[in-house]
Design a binder for these strands. Structure first.
Lengths: 581, 581
DNA sequence: GAAGGAGGTCACTAGGTCAT
DNA sequence: ATGACCTAGTGACCTCCTTC
């Protein structure tokens, strides 16, 4: 649907201006009372319509003389952009467009609004509702944030300005598209019917249409001049017009366009809503609680009551995890290691059988292990991973076996990560699928943080979980490469931040929920959780680190991409090991 | 001076128009922050490109009838000057040239602008920035002084007009030159080499190719290539900024083209450096200069004094990059593409031979491309990447060829990233090796940020640089997978942050210097640079985003790990494409 | 003639203004 | 702060003239 529609839509909102109808409608709509001032002042459509008209009609080639009296006429009043009797409407609010401004057909109001917004880089006050206000002529001044958002959404941009006269080709194209739209409309059940229908079906015809128009243009075929349509449109996206109907009033959307557009619109809005809907700020931190009740409290609260507790919990979740100790002590058992997906699910208390197995293929992503570069041509295999008991591997063992043994070695660690995750307030509220996805993507990173202390850059050693220590040089000679170095460097910098236990726990939680989100189904929830944890972490750090708190917090966040890189490098090495054991 | 230059320079910027190239996504270009919508709107080029075409091809004698309908056609629209499939671009702004005006291939806009400027001897208002604004199609109207300067710089002059038809001889010469350029490019050592080379030799690669014979007429034959290098720089001493115009288009510059840049480069760099180091004040900050004075100063100071300046500069570095325009315009030329490592080095002005080649193997890391999952079992190959002209690939072509062609398609983008990097204050102070490493690791991420606007989650479309838009569903049906989704999501969230142009530039710089550090030799310097940039970004954001500044800044930092993930996913797809084309 | 460019024309728009 | 109205440009097209 949407697709088609879009295609269909030319580009702008149009309206029949023919009869006096318009005026009526408008007046109705117009929120403003009737201004006494003369016709000119009349804000409403009619008056304006009467003003100078820019006719894009084909035949209108150049009747410069006729309609417009030259420049002077301009002074007369704002012009109405009209094509073949159809008035173009503002893509932002549906008012009558005065031209093509910032890449979009827009009215004087929205043009001016957008101009001011960008010129002064104004940050509007947050929307009081859901940040998805519908923007129409009558209410466009109610929410600046949403209005500006809409401007951007429909494509207004300083880079999209177009000067000079409209290229004939474009004009032609517009016309054709509009005509098509019209025909469709009319042919259907007759104009009235369609109008009616449209009206009802879509509350915001204009938007609907408009939004897509821009996009679609290129696409399809239907656009008459296929060839033209394509590129040109792209290039001039907004150009096409959106067939809308009449005045602000009746907008009739393009043939199908409206429908589609609606779709798109709505989706957009939804997205917005969701995102913002969550109250990231709501998560306050414990300690400050007492000491500073005055600290900024969460802006909007959803269940504020338990927030503190949650936060505390999260800050301690790791510590409370019995596993923690184990981690450092190398609790490496022989527990079997199999498909991670399943493993995670089981540990999370889910039924693995209910999940798709595609995930299994990615399990290498989660391992905390690495081997020397495959460049290691010796016949001996090495597994230079601190999770291993030793970097040396029995050369006589089949590589498959080595691999399995190795994999098993970190099962306990993975289990601990899962336990930790389960203690993160809010984590279990995510869908099972998403919990597993985050764990799969983030386990390595979590382990990296927790085991950072195994890497000692100052002494240039790495302590394996077996308790044995090896120098970096030794490990390098066994084939360890860049990754090992990077891990050491990471550890050193992390240590330099001197995080407290709580901070470390909270940071670890952040690491987990910040894991690669690809595949996450409920992105908004994951993000909301992340926001909450970040907020808590921020408060904690701010509270603990004095002058350097801002820097510390920033540096902490900068650890995330580093972890991601380590994770990837690690995965690559694992992969290469599997490929060339 | 000018004279010589002109002579030397052939003349114009060219671009292949065969594909959708021409159209290029203007949107992309947008300097403005990543607005969500834009993609669609890009109107122009394409359409124009589609307009009347003046073919200079030899054989093309004059199919007047065909392409242009003679005079009448003229009425049709402005013509596009095309030679053998290559479209000539305006030497001033990179738009499609309509002819040879005032001694230079120029578009109607710049022609008219220049005409008015000289006719009325207009004294334009002083540039509000550094008087070195990059002139591109999208922003050519923002600074008259710089535009006029650029006109003069590229050689426009009333004395250079050429009347009447193009002498056959000249036409022939142009053709030959272009062909040579083409061949060189392709054959030589690969694109990179040429890029590199180009970099050094001619600031205005495009021209080289172009014919411009006009001026040259005078000069000698050799002019073509040799000349290139020379003069340009001279003529435009200040030009650092306009090193190439071509780019913007895609120009593919002549082989020698790149060379040009070099000259420019150095000069360019100097410019930048000088600015920072020397006249801090000289660098004025756009809007908030004054107001920002009160911003918090960097915590620990290393040259605190110049921070702001640096910040400003860096915040504008992207904008000043001529390439930006190119980006949007999709300048996909035929520049060869080979070993990236070498390419980077070349562009950076280093000697590729001195570097280890191991890097080359990783070059896939840098591409901004992705294809559908290999699960795509159909015989047809798809390259669902917005840098491509189309997701469809000729099934008859050998995959190797497809791959190479595809690789070439983003060479211009890579080049732009390099140019951008060079403008980041402090970046060039890193060792050559580290500069290359960061570029290799971060190019994809930088491109992802700059091209974010191509992905429109609201409308569920992706605009290719060719200007064509495709719905996510369509792309998905072609094999695109999770990555595409993730990219869209990333784009949406980024757009939601509503960064200003400066913020976006600064953020982009941060992205680059925050790239995977593995392999970096002087970690501390890289980190110091990162700190500096982050600090600047933080100040800027804090200053611009009011209540939400902290949140915005945090969210911005959280984009880094996301970018890293996208980068990795992308690399994986690339790899899988190479393994299973 | 016909190709091809200078200039002119005037459809159009970014921005500035200022009453509201 | 908004938006109707203006001003100063801008650039798509055209006409006319030069050169091949």
């Amino acid at each position: 649907m949407p697709e088609d529609n879009r295609t269909a839509k030319p580009g702008g909102v149009i309206a029949y201006i023919s009869s006096g109808l318009a005026s009526t409608a408008e007046s109705c709509v117009s929120s403003r009372p009737m201004l006494t001032s003369p016709p000119a002042s009349r804000p409403s459509l009619p008056s304006r319509a009467v003003g100078m008209v820019v006719d894009i009609a084909p035949s209108a080639k150049r009747g410069s003389g006729a309609e417009k009296t030259g420049r002077s006429s301009a002074s007369a009043k704002s012009s109405v952009t009209k094509i073949n009797g159809m008035v173009l409407l503002c893509k932002v609010c549906g008012d009558v467009a005065s031209g093509f401004h910032y890449g979009v057909h827009a009215c004087e109001g929205c043009k001016g609004f957008f101009r001011r917004s960008i010129q002064q880089n104004i940050q509007y006050k947050k929307c009081l509702k859901m940040e998805n206000c519908t923007i129409m002529r009558i209410n466009r001044n109610r929410c600046q944030q949403c209005r500006f958002k809409k401007c951007l959404a429909v494509g207004m941009s300083k880079d999209a300005v177009r000067f000079g006269r409209i290229p004939k080709r474009e004009k032609q194209r517009m016309l054709l598209e509009m005509q098509n739209a019209m025909n469709n409309m009319i042919s259907k059940n007759g104009p009235l019917h369609s109008m009616l229908h449209d009206d009802q079906s879509s509350p915001l015809p204009i938007e609907a249409i408009s939004s897509d128009a821009s996009s679609s243009s290129s696409s399809s075929s239907s656009s008459s001049s296929s060839s033209t349509s394509d590129s040109p449109s792209c290039s001039y996206p907004s150009s096409p017009q959106y067939p809308q109907d009449s005045e602000s009033v009746v907008s009739m959307d393009t043939n199908s366009s409206s429908a589609s557009s609606c779709g798109s619109d709505s989706s957009e809005d939804e997205g917005v809503i969701m995102n913002n809907g969550q109250h990231p700020d709501a998560f306050t931190f414990p300690q400050q609680r007492s000491s500073s009740e005055g600290l900024a409290s969460p802006p909007s609260g959803t269940g504020c009551g338990s927030r503190m507790e949650e936060q505390q919990e999260s800050s301690n979740c790791w510590n409370r995890n019995p596993a923690v100790g184990g981690y450092q002590r190398c609790p490496y058992s022989n527990s079997a290691y199999s498909k991670e997906g399943a493993a995670y699910q089981q540990q999370l208390g889910c039924d693995p059988s209910t999940h798709d197995h595609s995930q299994e293929e990615h399990y290498t992503q989660n391992a905390f292990s690495y081997n020397g570069p495959n460049s290691c041509t010796k016949s001996r295999a090495y597994l230079v991973c601190p999770m291993n008991t030793s970097p040396y591997v029995d050369p006589n063992k089949p590589s498959q076996e080595i691999w399995e043994e190795f994999s098993m070695s970190f099962t306990p660690a993975v289990r601990e990560v899962v336990e930790f995750a389960k203690r993160i307030p809010g984590f279990r509220d995510l869908s099972e699928h998403d919990q597993v996805s985050l764990l799969k993507a983030g386990t390595f990173e979590v382990l990296m943080v927790r085991f950072a202390s195994l890497f000692n850059m100052a002494e240039r050693t790495v302590t394996f979980l077996s308790g044995k220590r090896y120098s970096l040089d030794t490990l390098r000679s066994l084939g360890a490469g860049e990754l090992l170095n990077s891990m050491c460097e990471f550890s050193e910098k992390l240590a330099a931040l001197r995080l407290s236990e709580e901070e470390m726990s909270l940071f670890t939680a952040v690491v987990l929920v910040s894991a690669n989100r690809s595949g996450i189904r409920d992105l908004n929830s994951a993000e909301a959780l992340q926001d909450k944890l970040i907020w808590a972490l921020r408060n904690l750090v701010m509270h603990n680190h004095g002058d350097e708190s801002a820097t510390t917090f920033t540096k902490l966040l900068l650890k995330l991409p580093e972890l991601r890189s380590l994770n990837n490098m690690h995965s690559e090495e694992l992969l290469s090991f599997k490929v060339h054991p």
